[in-house]
Computed example of a mutant assay.
Amino acid sequence: MTVQLYARDVGSGTPLVLVHAFPLSSAMWLAQREGLASRFRVITPDLRGFGGSVLGDDEPSVDTMADDLARMFRNLGVRRAVVGGLSMGGYVAMALCRRHPELVLGLVLAATRASADTGPVRETRLRQAERLERDRSPRVLVDEVLPGLVGPTTYRQRALIYGRVRGLVQATPPLAAAWAQRAMAARPDAFDTLRGLRAPALVMIGDEDALATEDEARAMADALPNAELLVIPRAGHLCAVEQPDLFNQAVAEFAAALARTAR
Score class of each variant (00 low, 15 high):
Thr64Met: 02
Leu103Ile: 07
Ser25Gln: 04
Val3Pro: 07
Val54Met: 08
Val83Ala: 00
Arg98Leu: 04
Gly51Tyr: 12
Asp135Pro: 09
Met94Arg: 00
Ala257Ile: 04
Ala7Ile: 10
Gln157Met: 11
Leu76Ser: 07
Asp245Trp: 04
Ala178Thr: 07
Met1Val: 08
Asp209Pro: 08
Met1Asp: 05
Ala129His: 00
Gly206Lys: 05
Gln157Asn: 13
Leu224Tyr: 04
Leu141Asn: 08
Cys97Ser: 03
Tyr6Cys: 14
His100Asn: 04
Ala95Phe: 04
Asp143Phe: 07
Ser25Leu: 00
Leu175Met: 13
Gly163Pro: 10
Asp46Lys: 11
Ala227Met: 03
Leu18Lys: 06
Val203Gly: 03
Gly56Lys: 06
Leu18Glu: 01
Ala223Tyr: 05
His237Asp: 05
Glu144Arg: 10
Thr153Asp: 10
Arg166Trp: 13
Phe73Val: 11
Val82Arg: 00
Val19Gly: 00
Leu141Phe: 10
Val92Ala: 01
Met72Ile: 09
Glu59Pro: 10
Ala255Trp: 06
Pro60Trp: 01
Gly167Lys: 07
Asp58Phe: 03
Tyr162Cys: 12
Thr124Gln: 15
Ala177Lys: 01
Leu238Ile: 01
Gly77Met: 10
Asp57Ser: 15
Val121Pro: 03
Leu194Thr: 00
Tyr6Ala: 14
Val150Ile: 14
Val83Arg: 00
Ala159Phe: 14
Val145His: 02
Leu30Asp: 14
Val145Ser: 10
Asp192Leu: 01
Val92His: 01
Val78Asn: 06
Ala212Gln: 13
Glu208Val: 04
Ala116Ser: 11
Thr118Gln: 13
Arg39Met: 08
Thr213Gly: 09
Val169Pro: 12
Leu141Asp: 11
Ala171Asp: 15
Ser12Pro: 06
Leu107Glu: 02
Pro244Arg: 03
Gly119Asn: 09
Leu230Ala: 14
Glu216Tyr: 04
Val241Gln: 12
Phe22Cys: 04
Arg80Lys: 14
Asp209Phe: 10
Gly106Pro: 00
Arg187Met: 00
Val42Gly: 07
Pro225Thr: 06
Val92Thr: 04
Arg263Ile: 11
Val169Asn: 11
Pro101Tyr: 08
Arg136Phe: 09
Glu34Thr: 11
Asn75Val: 13
Phe50Met: 13
Ala37Glu: 08
Gln32Ala: 04
Leu229Val: 01
Gly236Thr: 11
Gly13Cys: 02
Pro174Cys: 02
Ser38Pro: 01
Leu30Tyr: 12
Ala176Asn: 03
Ala27Arg: 14
Leu141Ala: 08
Glu130Pro: 02
Glu59His: 15
Asp135Val: 10
Thr153Arg: 12
Thr172Gly: 09
Ala180Arg: 08
Cys97Phe: 06
Leu86Gly: 02
Ala210Gln: 15
Gln249Asn: 09
Pro244His: 05
Val54His: 08
Tyr91Glu: 05
Ala199Tyr: 00
Arg187Val: 03
Leu5Thr: 02
Arg136Trp: 08
Pro233Gly: 12
Arg166Asn: 12
Val251Tyr: 11
Ala176Val: 01
Val54Tyr: 03
Arg260Asp: 13
Ile205Tyr: 01
Cys239Asp: 13
Ala7Pro: 08
Ala177Thr: 06
Arg156Trp: 15
Ala116Trp: 04
Gly163Gln: 14
Asn248Cys: 01
Pro138Trp: 11
Ile43Met: 02
